[in-house]
């Protein structure tokens, strides 16, 4: 019994309700971005809740804009942008985009695999709200986004060293400061 067991009170009908929509969307995506898509994991075959499309990092913005604006997709709501540290597996990071369509009520997930030190383009041109989510990924994992308007730490203090959500950062790695952060005037001019 795992996620493939369909429980009606817990989104169990999603797999059947959207099965055809997802199949046609995935085949259209593969037709359009044949080289960019590394892998597709469909629900029921794999223990996942929505189709996961693994995209190469160079074409991520193209795929996201296509998913956002194209007829029949219209995944206009960026539900979540986050990262996973898969170490010791290589490539180390997976950047995860959870998308939701307000018109068809379907969800889809796009993932990009990144190695340590690799950079990926920012999704800010597609969704302004990706700004802070990418800053958080930079803060917590150390992944840099090219073209980001303002890539600096967001949750931790600017002076913090290290990236806390990486698997090698200890749970209790304290770093104590004694003086408050000053205003960053360059951001206000």
């Amino acid at each position: 019994m795992d996620i493939r067991t369909q429980v009606s009170t817990n989104y169990g009908d999603m797999a059947t309700k959207f099965a055809d929509t997802w199949k046609s969307q995935v085949s259209r995506l593969q037709a359009r971005f044949s080289t960019a898509i590394e892998e597709v994991r469909m629900p029921i075959e794999f223990p996942v809740d929505v189709p996961i499309v693994y995209v190469k990092k160079d074409s991520i913005i193209g795929v996201l804009s296509f998913l956002k604006t194209e007829q029949g997709f219209e995944y206009g709501f960026l539900a979540d942008l986050t990262a996973i540290d898969e170490s010791p597996a290589e490539p180390r990071f997976e950047i995860v985009y959870n998308l939701y369509s307000l018109t068809s009520k379907a969800r889809i997930r796009v993932k990009v695999r990144l190695a340590e030190g690799e950079e990926i383009s920012t999704a800010v041109p597609v969704w302004r709200g990706a700004d802070w989510a990418e800053r958080e990924i930079f803060d917590m994992f150390g992944v840099k986004f090219t073209g980001h308007p303002d890539l600096r730490r967001i949750l931790m203090a600017d002076r913090w060293e290290g990236h806390p959500l990486r698997k090698d950062y200890p749970l209790r790695g304290y770093q104590v400061f004694t003086d408050p952060d000053p205003i960053n005037q360059s951001l206000l001019d």
Partner: peptide
Amino acid sequence: NLKMAPVLRT
């Protein structure tokens, strides 16, 4: 927090 502690002290 460790980020808020200097503020509290101030």
